[in-house]
């Protein structure tokens, strides 16, 4: 008697069961991806576009970090090396640079969509708040990343940015020394910005994206805002 050979479909289902019993991931993925959503439009794609750009930034940033040298004498040269010498270095750096601008633009559009749909209202206040934190941290990414190019514009723009913080009453000089890592612009400034840019802030953004998505899944996608039809308002 021949040994029964499972067909392809069975094999997939058995594999899925095997994973399901041990991790529960298939259920998790199904609940995450196969949700009921109200009628949506292109405006609802802005959030996932942002997630895509963030992933692009994380991947290209990690690649750039392999050749970047965060020191006053080495930073500019290493950027030139990445751009001019490395295979596809110009492309990876270009994606990171343009992706940074795209992320800020998409963030404003996404925020605008949420605002005009009234999607920040009950019960989604925490989604709005975590999104706002991601917004602030994205701005911090822009600030810290700008210095790393280490050309004249990067240097003076960062001097101006630090001094803008320095003009704050009471805490001004302390904030500026905190950012610089000392009383003057130094080697510690560029490595400080580098650590913030590639370790701390991305980690925080990643964690907040997780919370943000959790809330989106838990609370559901906001439907189109609509005025109650008079009959409905009357309880008809």
């Amino acid at each position: 008697m021949p040994i029964p050979v499972p067909d392809g479909k069975q094999l997939v289902l058995q594999t899925e069961d095997w994973v399901e019993y041990r991790t529960g991931f298939p259920t998790l993925v199904r609940k995450f991806l196969f949700r009921k959503v109200p009628p949506t439009g292109w405006f609802h794609t802005l959030g996932s576009s942002l997630l895509t750009v963030f992933i692009i930034q994380a991947v290209t940033g990690s690649l750039l970090a392999m050749s970047y040298n965060p020191s006053p004498n080495g930073a500019y040269e290493s950027i030139r090396y990445i751009t001019d010498q490395e295979t596809l270095g110009w492309l990876i750096r270009g994606m990171h640079k343009w992706g940074a601008s795209m992320m800020v633009i998409l963030l404003f559009l996404h925020m605008g969509r949420v605002f005009f749909y009234g999607a920040y209202k009950y019960p989604r206040e925490m989604t709005w708040l975590t999104g706002s934190l991601i917004f602030i941290l994205t701005m911090a990414m822009g600030l810290t990343g700008y210095l790393l190019v280490w050309d004249e514009r990067a240097y003076w723009a960062s001097v101006v940015a630090v001094n803008i913080n320095g003009t704050a009453p009471v805490l001004g000089p302390f904030i500026s020394k905190f950012l610089l890592g000392g009383p003057v612009f130094g080697a510690q400034t560029i490595s400080r910005f580098y650590a913030l840019h590639m370790l701390m802030i991305p980690g925080l953004i990643g964690a907040l994206i997780f919370v943000h998505l959790w809330l989106v899944v838990k609370l559901g996608v906001t439907p189109w805002p609509s005025r109650p039809v008079p009959d409905e308002a009357a309880g008809d």
């Binding site: 320095g166 009453p169 009471v170």
Partner: peptide, 25 residues
């Protein structure tokens, strides 16, 4: 010395001014 963008002698009592706009140390 004070930070750029901070007044050296803001109006009002100097103790308030010193707290508002501390000298660079």
């Amino acid at each position: 010395v004070k930070m750029p963008g901070q007044p050296v002698a803001p109006p009002g009592p100097s103790i308030v001014a010193d707290v508002l706009y501390p000298n660079v140390t």
